[in-house]
Simulated assay, not measured.
Amino acid sequence: MPLPKLCIYNRQKAHVIPLPWLRRIGKAALPGCLAALKSSDAPLASLPEIEITIVDDADIARVHGDFLDDPTPTDVITFHHGEILISADTAQRQGLDHGQSVDHEVALYLVHGLLHLAGWDDHETDEAREMAKLQSSILKDAVKAVQSV
């Protein structure tokens, strides 16, 4: 199965996100996310391209309100047509809470979004816990792969 093309854009100004590094992390994480498909009809199995856009809290809150009826900022929103929105502002706050850099949190949210496209859902406690373990493992492997190049 060919890997989808990742198109990553930065549409916020407050944080400098290293897009080339994030692209390499995303490419390295894709095989693990594809291996974790929940079903053969999950969007990730057939998408030729995935668009990832880094935004600020105001933008993600607007989309969250428009599409999910919750006008508050969130970390990541994934659309099954292959679009992932990531809030750099939320990544900054959560990174501080978890002792991680904003770059690491954004990369984690990227893997999280890819797992949503692989059919994972984090609304149930047990699946959320399993998804969190899986995304941490995939991210760890992707970072190792990128660092070894």
Rank of each mutant, 00 (worst) to 15 (best):
I138V: 07
K38V: 07
K140C: 06
I84R: 08
I54S: 09
I138G: 04
H15V: 02
I54F: 08
S101N: 04
I138H: 08
D56E: 05
R23C: 10
S39P: 15
L115M: 13
I54R: 10
R23H: 14
A58G: 07
L34G: 02
A35F: 12
A28F: 09
D59I: 14
L96F: 02
S148W: 03
K140W: 04
K38W: 03
N10K: 01
V16Q: 10
H104Y: 12
Q135L: 13
A58S: 11
L22A: 04
L108N: 07
L30N: 05
A132C: 11
I52C: 13
G99S: 03
K13D: 03
K13S: 03
V76Q: 14
R23Y: 04
H116E: 04
H64G: 05
G65E: 11
E130Q: 14
L37M: 05
I77T: 03
T78W: 02
D89V: 14
H123Y: 15
A29M: 11
D56M: 06
A142D: 08
I84T: 06
A88W: 06
S39V: 13
D59N: 11
L85P: 03
E105T: 05
I52P: 06
L19F: 13
E51L: 08
I77Y: 06
H112S: 09
L34W: 02
Q100C: 09
Y109L: 07
L44P: 03
T90K: 15
F67G: 06
H80F: 10
A88D: 06
P20Y: 00
D103F: 01
L117T: 05
T78G: 04
A35Q: 15
A42N: 10
H104E: 04
A145R: 14
R62G: 05
L22Q: 07
G119K: 09
T53K: 07
H15Q: 08
A58Q: 13
A29Y: 10
A29W: 09
F67P: 04
P4R: 00
P4N: 00
L108K: 05
P4G: 00
T90Q: 15
E83T: 13
I52H: 06
A29H: 11
L117Q: 07
S87N: 09
K38G: 05
Q94H: 13
S101R: 04
F67T: 10
S136M: 09
S87W: 10
I86P: 06
P2V: 01
G119C: 09
L96T: 10
L114N: 01
Q147Y: 08
M131E: 09
P2T: 01
R23W: 10
G99L: 04
L68M: 15
R62M: 06
L110F: 02
G32S: 09
G113P: 06
G119W: 11
G26H: 03
S46F: 11
F79E: 12
G65L: 07
D97E: 14
G119T: 13
K13C: 01
P4M: 00
S46W: 12
E105D: 07
L6C: 01
V102K: 02
D56S: 03
Y9A: 01
I50Y: 12
S46T: 13
K133W: 11
Y109T: 02
T72P: 11
